[in-house]
Design a binder for these strands. Structure first.
Lengths: 357, 357
DNA sequence: TCCCTGCGGGAAAGGGCTTTCTCTGCGGTA
DNA sequence: TACCGCAGAGAAAGCCCTTTCCCGCAGGGA
């Protein structure tokens, strides 16, 4: 690889001058030398060594991002928002996939710190794990102590800037919608229970049901991976345990799609026999058939906000921006079936009648 | 930020010793010093400066990857394959999204070269653009001249190692399938015509139709963006121009999903009234309703192969691995409707009869 | 006793670039 | 004519590590 001094030698100038020409320094250089340098660069196909540049400049400019998986639509959307702001400000993004492995998350914090990023953004659910949370906070604090900026998206841990989708309110919306449609026996296809996202959404949902005089016993909740196959499998288990289910809330859209697949496989008509509500409103939600009723989160906006926080002026008090959830009514949630409505009261009498029909 | 010499000073050793401890060098260090260094590292929350390390080691280890967009399922799958091999070999991946902008692609080649990557992988369609192709090849050649390895996935440009999905054969399979089902009036929802992927798939499709005595006039092809909305829009235009269409081939699955959306909006039953065949078999293809009949490409495997080529032994002759396409029959392609079969001969007489019915 | 060997540790030389500081030479002013 | 100031170029000092080379010392063999 050609180096800067190769270029300088070839152009018959000092490395300093070559550097100035190449980087468009403010220091003036005569046109003749400039031309010679540029010619040398072209002839040698010279590309500056980024590591050397970064080291010499000791100029923190890149921003580190830790997500579960960029190719997961939830994070893809958030990343789109992050990217938009970063590009506007001429920042490079370093994106790392933790695949929801806490250890890997910790490692990536160090890795990114080592790469001298100007800021760090952690997106995705936090964990109900005391030890991990403490460790993470220590690392983040150490990073902040050296001037690094940190923001989190959708997790509570961090004491500093945060962008929070209103998961709880979203869960509430889903619950209220189904209650309004007359459903009483509602199952939940949930993500891993160690994730705060799962428990937050669940809490909102439970609150809505309670307010409407329904309940949400643990046996109507199935925890699985937060993806399509997890949703399919959890739905199957739910159905096996409780055939009287008239509605399912999936705690994200991927799981909802898995749920729809299982329901289709079992010949259950959606929404005539059973309703489904998803969560997140990822792009594909409108294209499945029937189109998915779901709770929308402003994902791109979340990314935009987080990056703005982290690149904006430093403020003494930590800022927490809560972004609202919104119910998107499409075609997977309908009124409770008549048969189920008859047996609605959970009195044994009604149950028997239902079973006999 | 604490530096190595801070650590060394605190531990009362030389930077050399500190470095050896931290990096687990093969050179032996007494336990006492080791402990002192480790303690200092912990106290100072020391993290090595990655740029300095990379510079000092001058050790090309990372691999650069340029794709259209990692969050596009097509590339997400390929990337999964790349990642798998890279992780096995302890390589870091630097992934860049070109968003199908040739200039950005060129820039990223330089950027990655500057970052001293050991190899470069370009995934995604090439362009019918002489000037760009030449420029790209020059840059790649310059990189290879300095010992860099290069492989491309799904593009013809490069003269070296390549992994090629058999796009042409895939197009052929789609065409043969539809002909076999009796379709005669087949429309194509195509990606941008500047992409070689588009033209390759189209060529295979055209060959199949020709062999079966059908033709594929330009007016039955609509070019649009290679995504959902492009597919939806192109389908609408196609339908407007040619209401007699009984089948649509979408040149990738995203477009196929857009096509299904348009057909649904217009109340056309799939596959009873009109058939649809996609391309790529991305994961969501099985979850749309009806499940998408499509041409599968071994995406993950393509990534695996490419990374293996590039990290494996250097070989004099460039290797080109062609990976086969496979037709996946699901539910969107069915026999041509009876009405259309009657009017199959393009004789005016039959047409009139059809219109009267 | 002497020399050689080998081990544990430090000094110092890069690695390639940026940037400050210094120097030279020229034009302009007193 | 003497001096000042400034423009334009180069010398050199980092930036923070890694790794080679070298040194001192202790132990073992002759």
């Amino acid at each position: 690889m050609a180096t800067l001094s190769d270029v300088a030698r070839r152009a018959g100038v000092s490395p300093a001058t070559a550097s100035r020409v190449i980087n468009g320094s403010s220091k003036p250089v005569t046109d003749e030398l400039r031309e010679r340098v540029l010619a040398a660069v072209a002839e040698l196909q010279y590309v500056p060594n980024a590591h050397a540049q970064l080291l010499a400049r000791s100029h923190r400019s890149a921003v580190g991002v830790i997500v579960h998986d960029v190719s997961d639509p939830y994070f893809a959307e958030i990343t789109r928002g992050l990217q938009r702001v970063a590009t506007d400000q001429g920042r490079l993004l370093m994106i790392c996939n933790s695949y929801r492995d806490p250890d890997r998350e910790l490692e990536y914090v160090e890795l990114l710190r080592g790469h001298q990023v100007a800021a760090l953004i952690l997106a995705g659910s936090g964990y109900h794990d005391e030890a991990f949370t403490r460790q993470l906070n220590e690392k983040l604090a150490a990073y902040e102590a050296t001037g690094g900026r940190v923001a989190v998206i959708g997790r509570h841990e961090h004491s500093g800037d945060a962008v929070m989708p209103d998961n709880r309110a979203g869960g509430y919306l889903a619950g209220r919608e189904l209650c309004g449609l007359g459903h009483r026996v509602i199952g939940v296809v949930a993500g891993p229970r160690i994730l705060t996202t799962t428990t937050d959404r669940l809490a909102g949902l439970r609150q809505a049901l309670t307010e409407q005089g329904r309940d949400l016993p643990e046996r109507r909740i199935r925890y699985a991976e937060f993806d399509r196959d997890g949703g399919a499998e959890a739905t199957a288990r739910l159905l096996d345990a409780d055939p009287e289910l008239t509605a399912i809330v999936a705690l994200n859209d991927s799981m909802a799609i898995g749920a729809l697949a299982t329901l289709r496989a079992r010949g259950l008509a959606v929404p005539q026999q059973i309703s489904v509500v998803g969560f997140d409103d990822m792009p594909i939600a409108r294209d499945v058939t029937p189109a998915l009723t779901t709770v929308r989160l402003p994902l791109v906006d979340m990314g935009v906000r987080a990056m703005s926080l982290v690149l904006g002026a430093e403020v003494a008090a930590p800022r927490v921006e809560v972004l609202p959830a919104e119910l998107i009514r499409r075609d997977t949630a309908g009124p409770v079936p008549l048969a189920a409505r008859v047996s609605a009261g959970s009195a044994p009498r009604a149950r028997r009648g239902d079973a006999a029909s």
